Amino acid sequence: MKIGLDIMGGDFAPEAVVLGAIESYQFLSPDQKLVLIGNQEIARKIIRDNHFDENCFEYVHTTEVIGMAEHPTKAIAQKPSSSIGIGFQLLKEGKIDSFASAGNTGAMLVGAMFSVKAIPSVIRPAIAGIVPKLKGGCGIILDVGANADCKPDVLVQFGILGSLMAESLYDIDQPKVGLINIGEEKEKGNLLCQATFPLMAENKQFNFVGNIEGRDLFTDQADVFVCDGFTGNVVLKLAENFYDITLKKGMRDEFFDRFNYEQYGGSPILGVNAPVIIGHGISNPEAIKSMVLLSKNTVESGLIEKIKKAFL
């Protein structure tokens, strides 16, 4: 297995990314290799300065970077030699088995769609986020930003994608799928939710449990929470802020500690033909390590092949 890692993406790159790669190395087996994509000279120096063996990694050299504020589509087209551009080229050619970056989120989405492309029959790929549960474990919420506006059939597909992720990566048997809404009754909600509910209820590819309200997000009411990307992004960022608030208030609580993004590392793009992981722009070494391990687990679980089979 070869895990591609963009060492130039993120607010604290390349140092934080390379240090994260070093931290993740001990969790990889001998047949699992990290491929560092970016400025090779800088990467090797950081590794040597931290008294680590630079021969533990493979390197693909480039100095070109897609900035966080650059227009995604233009940057992908105009910078094929960027660390993100090269990463997707290697993924498309099968030279790496997964690709992860804490860089420009839009460029990662566009790059995935232009290179490995969406799985046939998947209307719109989604970004999945993780939310902790009060009684332990976690739930999956999608979409969290790839699709601000959705149609009912797209939300139904998110139910399939989220259910497969819950089964494959988190060993949840027959995950409960809920539709985020403003009430439990099937008649509630905006036009999108009203039209989506009967379609999800009729679908036999996942275990639909009905509408889920915001107050149910951290409970066992559901394992997969489906919504459009606008709603999901607002919910996820609000949830992530809980952890920052507890730190500022001097509070320590095991539940709120699990809101720390470092534990999850990143979010997979579900519905494309290869494992692609998007990390937080503010990722530190611990978050990068988690992102590498998520990449490894995604490949090992065979999630992409399971999604392809589900959409045949």
Rank of each mutant, 00 (worst) to 15 (best):
E93W: 03
E93L: 08
G94A: 02
G94L: 01
G94K: 00
G94H: 00
K95Y: 00
K95F: 00
K95D: 00
K95M: 01
I96Y: 05
I96S: 01
D97K: 11
D97Y: 02
D97I: 06
S98D: 11
F99T: 13
F99R: 13
F99E: 14
F99L: 14
F99N: 13
A100F: 13
A100I: 14
A100T: 13
S101G: 11
S101D: 14
S101T: 15
A102R: 07
A102D: 11
G103S: 10
G103N: 09
G103T: 08
G103Y: 12
T105L: 05
T105P: 03
T105A: 11
T105I: 06
G106Q: 12
G106Y: 12
A107D: 07
L109W: 02
L109H: 01
L109P: 00
V110I: 14
V110N: 00
G111N: 01
A112I: 05
M113G: 01
M113A: 13
M113W: 01
F114Y: 11
S115W: 05
S115Y: 08
V116W: 03
V116G: 02
V116A: 07
K117R: 15
K117F: 08
K117H: 15
A118T: 15
I119H: 10
P120R: 11
P120M: 08
P120A: 10
V122C: 08
V122I: 15
V122N: 04
I123S: 11
I123A: 10
R124F: 08
P125V: 13
A126P: 00
A126M: 07
A126N: 06
A126T: 11
I127M: 15
I127L: 15
I127K: 03
A128M: 15
A128K: 06
A128V: 15
A128D: 07
G129P: 09
G129M: 07
G129W: 06
I130F: 05
I130Y: 05
V131N: 07
V131P: 03
V131Q: 01
P132M: 04
P132K: 03
